[in-house]
Design a protein around this nucleic acid. Structure first.
Lengths: 140, 140
DNA sequence: TTTTTAGTTTACGTTCACGTAAAGGTAAGC
DNA sequence: GCTTACCTTTACGTGAACGTAAACTAAAAA
């Protein structure tokens, strides 16, 4: 069991001690506790596009941030294509947003879904509370 | 296009005007905006068990409440088997809870997942905020 | 130099949560 | 009696998100 610090010194030549820290796919998979397969799948689905050194994938900080966004999106129940939409919103160039209104609509959708989820979670939590109380109650 | 009031007078004999209101599968599917297929699937998965009149399914109020719980569970990202677990918690008889500690552990798990989701939703919402702001910003 | 170790692509397999026929039963209305 | 509407079961199909195995490459370690 090693300790996986992301800032390993694993590059040798041309290292100007800049913050050019990169990551292999296995490092990422350990850091995020997902399989390399998943990471490659996200790439195939167009959610990330790491650099290559030869045939090998090389991940930078931006990719980590995206992965984080992807996993967070998954946890709140978004599908990969929905997450891709969000990412595309981020990536579309600043001024010339395609159809601004359309994008804003998408965002509104997402936001409303999240609001609904907040409610759902609250009621779910209080239901679990009541459940726990009931269990701890000695038989009346 | 009829109007689907759930309290239709569709029972004739022996109706003592009690609150014995029942529902057909199509009534439920319209009310909850899901397909009959889904409802039957939930039954096959052991999440609900409606009465029968002959071969037909007859749903009562308790079934509606369960369906509500199921759909809420789905919206917050639980799988059907996870929802079944929660339901089973509810259904296990009051005093002689099998292994109380084990059940409480399950509840804790669920609760923590929900807490994490609350965080996720919040950051996601603020990210959408920033995104919206960026879009509305005229090119600097 | 040979052997690990870590990476790659290709492709078929799998689980979940249903969708979608197909084939039939039953009660109401014409 | 026949049609229509609504229900049933059985069963095969489907999309998403990977799992898993096979076959190969390249670099690092022994």
């Amino acid at each position: 069991m090693k300790q996986y610090h992301l800032n390993d010194e694993n590059q040798s030549q041309e290292n100007h001690s800049q913050e050019t820290l990169t990551y292999s796919i296995s490092e990422l998979s350990k850091e995020f506790e997902i399989t390399p397969r998943s990471i490659r799948y996200y790439e195939a689905e167009g959610l990330i596009s790491p650099q290559r050194q030869g045939s090998q994938r090389v991940y930078h900080r931006g990719d980590l941030i995206r992965l984080q966004l992807i996993l967070r999106g998954k946890r709140v129940g978004f599908s990969l294509s929905e997450i891709r939409e969000i990412i595309n919103l981020y990536d579309s160039p600043k001024g010339e947003q395609k159809q601004t209104t359309l994008l804003l609509g998408k965002i509104e959708e997402r936001r409303n879904a999240l609001y609904q989820q907040q409610k759902d979670i609250k009621t779910m939590l209080s239901e679990l509370d009541r459940l726990e109380i009931r269990i701890n109650q000695p038989e009346k």
